[in-house]
Each structure stands twice: as C-alpha cells, then as structure tokens.
Computed example of a mutant assay.
Amino acid sequence: MSALTKIVIPVAGLGTRVLPASKSIPKEMLTVVDKPVIQHVVEEAIKAGFKEIILVTRNGKASIEDHFDKHYELEAELARKGKETLLKAVRDILPADVSICALRQNQPLGLGHAVLCAAPVVGNDDFAVMLPDMLIHSSIAGQSDLTDMVADYHKSGAAQIMVEAVPMQHVERYGVVDCAGKPLSPGQSQPIVGMVEKPPQAQAPSNQAIVGRYILPARVMELLKDTKPGAGGEIQLTDALDQLISEAPVNAYSMRGKTYDCGNKLGYLQANVVFGMHHEETAEEFKAFLNSL
C-alpha cells in the first residue's frame, strides 16, 4: 500500500445536461452558492488529506485552472480597499502544501480513458478518483464520507468504491454493486463480488449505487491500458474495476451523506438549496424565504 496523496478529477466533459449554461462556461465552474462546483469538490479532497490534485481537462476549460491560480490584480484591489474577508477567500482557495496540475484528454473516449490520461503523474502510487459533478452534503458537522473512506482504505488495504442507497425502482439509472447479499449500513464497508451497470430492478443485486468516489491501487492504470472499448464505444472504468475484483479485494463504502448531481439541472438546483440553507451568510434569510413560498 503506497502513500495516498494523489487524486484524479476528470473535468473534460461537455456538460450537455446543463446546456445552454455550459455552452461558454465549463459546467464545473457553475456556482453552488458562492463557489464553483469544482472548488467544492477540491475542498472535499483536501479535507480528506489529498495533496496532489490532478485535473484531466480539454480545450475550452482554462477557466478551471485560472480559478485555482493567483489573481494579483484582484488581490491588490481587495487589499487596497481593506476587504480582508474577501481577500482571504480568494487567497486561500488552495493551501500552500497542496499542488494542482492539469493534463489533456484529447479525445472523449470515456471515464476510463480520462483516468488513464493521468497515469504519467500518478506513476506507481495508489490514487483516488472524484467525479466533479457530484457534491456530497453531510448533515453531521465535520463529517466527511471521503475522509472516512480513506480511513477504511488504510485499515483494510482494499480498494474502495463509494456507494449510496437508492430506491430499488431507480437502480436502472446507476452502476450497482454486488456485495453477495451482505447488508451495508451507512458508514460501513463490505467486499464487492461484482458490479452491474444500470440493471433492471428485478436483476439488481442490491440498491447500492456507485456515486463517483474511488480509491484505487496503481494496478488499475495497467488494467486500463488493456481495457477494450465497452459501452458507447468508450473505455469504461467499470470494466477495469471488474477485472480488479478478480485479482484483489475491493470494498463498497456506504456513505452517510447525500449526493447532489450538479451535472443535471434538477440536481444543481437541489444542491444550491441545500448548501444555501447551511451557508453561514445565507442560511437564516434563505430559510425564511423558502418558508415564505
């Protein structure tokens, strides 16, 4: 088991589910309350102890990299006007001990291909993958599912896939894990024996849906190199993980929080409502506004 410091975040998607907003603005730069979605995701990664953020991007997404860069003119103007709170918010987007780099995915060949693009930086280290569309909100102050999943990785030595219990009538929308019928309560892990992509309800092995957080051994990069195009003619991460399960232990970690898919309009609106109700600057008046509707 290698040190776990690197996390891959694929941001090369076109964002077709939130058009026309994503026509000129990367979907990852759409704001939830006062921060772009990508900043919420990166902050989650940093809280879980990751120090090396690897963005897999494409042309037209430079604003994502710019957001995490210094903006000297803005900082100087805020300092001149004495707006210390705003200045701190702008300066402290990335802690000093955290680095961020960007690699290009020059063809839209699927999530597995996007992860493989990060292989030169990941090297021989175990790593994590986060999908930037999915935001997680916890009702428990200070609790982080990704942090807890990292702890399970260190304790068990097994790869981890985060899952969320969904209604059985909705399983056909998701990739679903098979834990051999073992119960999986929030905050717990169970070994995975298989995965099924968007199964009919009658054939679903469980109601535990994959939600876009993974902790993986370096071996996955080798498996991805040999993974043939699958569904949609794309290289699927799920196909490589199916192979991994036959070689090494892989656990499903059942999250405590709730996911909001900001890659579609409804999930994006829901995220703004939930995060707005818990933001220190907006919570009180926003709750009053919602109650008035």
Score class of each variant (00 low, 15 high):
V41A: 08
K51M: 05
D133M: 08
Y268L: 15
Q190V: 14
K6S: 12
L19V: 11
C117A: 13
T16I: 15
A128L: 01
K6N: 05
G13L: 09
A141T: 09
K61N: 11
L4F: 07
L94D: 04
I93Q: 15
G194K: 07
T147I: 02
N272W: 02
K83I: 10
V250F: 00
A12Y: 04
V211A: 05
A159C: 00
H137V: 10
I215T: 08
Q190H: 05
T259G: 09
D69P: 07
A202P: 03
G112A: 03
H154S: 08
M195Y: 06
G181I: 03
E222T: 13
A231F: 11
K81F: 09
L131C: 07
V42H: 02
H279N: 15
T282M: 13
K198G: 02
K287E: 10
A151H: 10
L241W: 06
Q105H: 09
E75R: 14
L131G: 12
G267E: 07
I9V: 14
M149P: 01
R58C: 14
I9H: 10
D148K: 13
A79N: 06
P95R: 13
P229M: 10
L94M: 13
V98A: 11
A165P: 04
Q188E: 15
K61Y: 12
Q160M: 15
G157V: 01
S144R: 04
E52L: 02
S156M: 05
A158M: 00
S185K: 15
L241A: 04
P10W: 08
Y72M: 11
V41P: 03
E84V: 15
V115E: 01
V121P: 02
L184Q: 10
K23H: 12
A118G: 00
I9C: 11
N291E: 14
F286T: 08
K155S: 11
D226Y: 03
L290W: 01
L94W: 12
D125I: 05
L103V: 12
H40D: 01
K265H: 12
L131A: 04
Y268A: 05
V211W: 03
P108H: 00
Q203M: 13
G13N: 10
E247N: 04
D145L: 10
I161V: 14
A231S: 09
Q270P: 06
D126E: 04
D148G: 06
I192W: 08
A119P: 02
K81V: 00
G49D: 08
G181T: 02
V41R: 13
D145N: 11
Q201V: 13
P200A: 08
P120C: 05
K287Y: 09
P120A: 00
A128C: 05
L135A: 06
I54A: 02
T282D: 02
G142C: 06
M277Y: 02
D152Q: 15
E280F: 13
P95Q: 11
T85G: 00
I245K: 11
I140F: 06
